[in-house]
Amino acid sequence: MKRNLAQVVLSTVALLIVLSAFLPDTDGGFSGIVKSADSYFPIWFSIIAVFAFVLGASSLIGSHVRKIKDRETDWQYSVVTVLSFAIVLIVGLAKLGGASGLEGDVSDPASVLGRIFSSVLSPLHATLFSLLAFYMASAAFRSFRIRSLETTVLLVSASIIIIGRLPFASKLFSFLPDALQWLRPDKLSLWMLLVPNTAGQRAVLITVSLGVIAVALKYILGMSRDMFGGQK
């Protein structure tokens, strides 16, 4: 019974969303009702997600408090997590240093929360993201080798793109005669990005979109065993 009800809700909502894509943009009538329902679904999802956040937060705090109480390995990190969570939550709820009241902007840059965002979170984000440069170098060193046909293709294409993206790439091979100018790494790398890469990207985009449709239809048509707890 529980499963059937959930399936009915899922199929009805999904069909309304799909239907809204095919109906004309009118305010009244059946089309208007479907369009207006479609605009409410994302809001409902956001409301449910807010309640779900309470679940997540309680799970996070519960597990870290337990770690601290039991003095598990690396419990000190859990103290940092719990303290950071409490400070940001209190500062945000109290809107310290910013416009107060329900209408007050939580993201006011002058507030304490705004300052935490720009002075702590932003530099941390930028630092973490900059690690990508180092990770890319080690991944490239390991993967781009003449070991098989696939890795050799990777090596050659990566080398052309890397050299082609150097600011002086056009000057590197400027000695080439006009008929062979297409061999310049900047031209070759642009060609590789615009032709083989675009072909591959389009293939992936089309098949992924079809995959998304097929998976979505599986759930809409009630053909999935595992959507509502496992047993059909």
Binding site: M136, A137, A140, F141, F144, S159, I162, I163, L166
Partner: peptide, 8 residues
């Protein structure tokens, strides 16, 4: 980029 190329 040049350092990565050297390692490659």
């Amino acid at each position: 980029h040049l350092v990565i190329m050297v390692f490659l």
